[in-house]
Design a binder for these strands. Structure first.
Lengths: 256, 256
DNA sequence: CGTCAGGTTGAGGATGATCAACGAATGTGG
DNA sequence: CCACATTCGTTGATCATCCTCAACCTGACG
């Protein structure tokens, strides 16, 4: 039991031990063999400390990671030093998609909290597709659905005001963290500085700060320390134009 | 031979008949059986006319489509009528990812040119994973890599100026269209109105118009009618911070 | 020949960036 | 245990980018 427990403090119960298994189980009923194979994939585990880089753009990789615990961000830094966060990885997510699938990693990934990772060599992934087609299908299904997250983020950056963007991000994280077994009904531990939130939302740090103040002044939500508390979920959802259906997992229809 | 042929006029030679096969062939060496299965997946074909909706947000679908010919866009419309284009589909792309993988489609897709589609019921997709694991792997690999496209678009919207965004889009389309067998070394037919480009780039129509003018005034590129001509590729790339490595396909390393 | 989609141009204004300074909190080493 | 450094948060003033609205133009097509 090392550090990084702060995040988990918000979990209702215990932290899932095999988060990828949990995720895929919401798409297919797993056989014992499949469950065991997935459990194996979660080992061995490696710890990485907060702020450490997990994947570095420009280097070559022959594996992914399963994020077992903690939160990471994938990002790109431009010539002039500007940074854009491309997504946030939560437990159960594959780290290295798509960065590691290229000749040379196209993005970097760094740990926002202390994290626990399980390396998955490409070879292991290939054997999953060869030996457990239903798992392969579920993996395909699951990662294809993640494009919906990018879609909503694109809408944020392209067509929503700063205020709406912030509201939308807060709500997305509420749902996603809950699905990962973290956070409760209307609050969660947020492992993001305002600077990071700015880089997620395509804004400047000071402006994020002002929008957070506005949210508080309007009685919609507060963000203090590393904790988000949502005071008026309906109003916040209306403001953000938030529809959580792009986040809710259901069994794959028709998969025998 | 109806309309919409303008696009194909730009193709160097003939239009690929099985574009998805071509795409996957750049990731794995295909066996005759795999090639045949993929060819089957390209049938039967259905034509859809320009401006017609292919997928409508809110409806339910039990299939994807392979885009055999033409160009489509996936988009979301907000309450206030603002629209954000989420991606452009070219021949060889699956249409319905991720929209159709939800209870109810989360985005709409419409035809930008006359298009030819091959419906692929989910069941057919599942049987691909079951019978041809290498194809399944390639499909997973290919669609996971598409997240890199979203990443670059997020960088566009979040951290690049309007001028840089436009330059980046022009270059991305150059490479993608070439990979699809359309367009030549420094020009291509562009099936986008300025209004559409604005909705791709998170800008207003008039501003896109001004940026196009600036590109022309600077001697970097011209966009006239439905044709883009790039006059100074190095300068345009430098301006956009464009690195095409996120678009270049290579065989999957280590896949037996 | 009229209509309409799409393109072009201008004026004014709003959103959010930039820059700068300060404050608070956290952590580190002496 | 204290002094200091560093990170993070807060606030204000100014300014640029890009939006909005509005008008007008052009070519294609029915």
């Amino acid at each position: 039991m090392a550090h990084g427990e702060a995040l988990c403090a918000s979990a209702a119960g215990s932290v899932p031990e095999y988060p990828l298994t949990d995720k895929l189980a919401s798409y297919v009923n797993l056989t014992p063999e499949e469950t065991e194979f997935l459990a194996e994939m979660h080992e061995p585990r490696r710890k990485v400390r907060r702020r450490r880089e997990i994947i570095i753009a420009g280097r070559q990789y022959d594996h992914l990671f399963i994020l077992c615990r903690g939160v990471v961000c994938r990002y790109k830094v431009l010539q002039d030093g500007k940074r854009q966060v491309l997504n946030l990885g939560l437990p159960g997510d594959f780290i290295g998609l798509p960065s590691s699938l290229f000749d040379v990693a196209v993005n970097s990934v760094s740990a926002l909290t202390d994290v626990v990772l399980a390396p998955v060599p490409f070879a292991k992934l290939f054997s999953l597709f060869a030996r457990f087609p239903r798992l392969g299908t579920a993996l395909f299904w699951s990662s294809a659905r993640e494009a919906a997250l990018y879609g909503e983020r694109l809408v944020d950056l392209g067509r929503r005001s700063a205020y709406e963007r912030l509201a939308h991000l807060i709500l997305e994280l509420l749902i996603r963290l809950r699905a990962a077994g973290l956070g409760d009904d209307n609050s969660y531990a947020l492992p993001l500085t305002q600077e990071l939130m700015a880089d997620v939302l395509g804004l400047s740090g000071p402006h994020v700060n002002r929008m957070i103040r506005t949210l508080r002044d309007e009685g919609l939500a507060t963000i203090e320390g590393q904790r988000v508390i949502i005071h008026d979920l309906p109003a916040l959802s209306a403001l953000a134009g938030f529809d959580e259906r792009y986040l809710t997992r259901r069994p794959i229809p028709g998969l025998i």
